[in-house]
């Protein structure tokens, strides 16, 4: 086992420019989730139905509530599983793509107008023309600091 080097995993440089890509950490295997949820739901229904046939029907609503709760939790992690953020410098353009809870949004800023905003809690955002986009949410604090440093250099024109 080895520790992942923080910086290398966050900043990707290619010959033409700079791209930052990070996605929500997820080990979700859809088939496994479906298997766990499906088998649990089916099993709960069989148990509740069996007891209902013996006259103890009040188990059914509890089984229903529980399956619903587990299903909701599964949906929530599914929605988050594909979340990512991508930031790319292309000449003077900054392209940002964010997918959060299943909703994808795209932003395009001009490098001359974009400003870096760092919060007291260590958050990192780019702001331009009244629009603010937070990035680095899937990084640790050290990673966000590195990202902020890199972006500051590129916005100031010290790095191209």
């Amino acid at each position: 086992m080895s520790k992942e080097p923080v910086f290398e995993s966050i900043l990707e440089h290619d010959g033409a420019g700079f791209t930052y890509f990070r996605r929500h950490a997820s080990s979700l295997d859809l088939r496994l989730l479906a298997m766990v949820f499906g088998s649990l739901a089916a099993f709960s229904v069989v148990i509740a139905a069996g007891f209902a046939m013996a006259g103890a029907w009040l188990i059914i609503p509890f089984a229903g509530v529980e399956i619903a709760a587990l299903g909701t939790a599964a949906c929530m992690i599914l929605r988050r599983a594909g979340d990512f953020e991508r930031l790319a410098f292309s000449g003077d353009r900054i392209l940002i793509e964010v997918r959060e809870r299943g909703l994808a949004r795209q932003f395009e800023f001009h490098r001359s107008w974009a400003r870096l905003v760092t919060g007291e809690t260590g958050s990192v955002a780019l702001r331009s023309h009244g629009r603010t986009v937070e990035i680095g949410r899937y990084c640790c604090a050290e990673g966000r600091r590195a990202l902020a440093l890199e972006l500051r250099g590129r916005l100031d024109g010290r790095r191209v």
Binding site: L40, F43, F51, L58, I59, I60, F62, E66
Partner: peptide, 28 residues
């Protein structure tokens, strides 16, 4: 956790039926 999710409704149902037998006139 799998076991817990599977059997907890059974316990909840059992004690609820005890409750309704005590106070709501059921005869489970």
């Amino acid at each position: 956790a799998y076991l817990l999710v599977a059997v907890m409704p059974v316990l909840a149902g059992a004690v609820t039926m005890t409750l309704t037998d005590r106070h709501f006139g059921t005869h489970f």
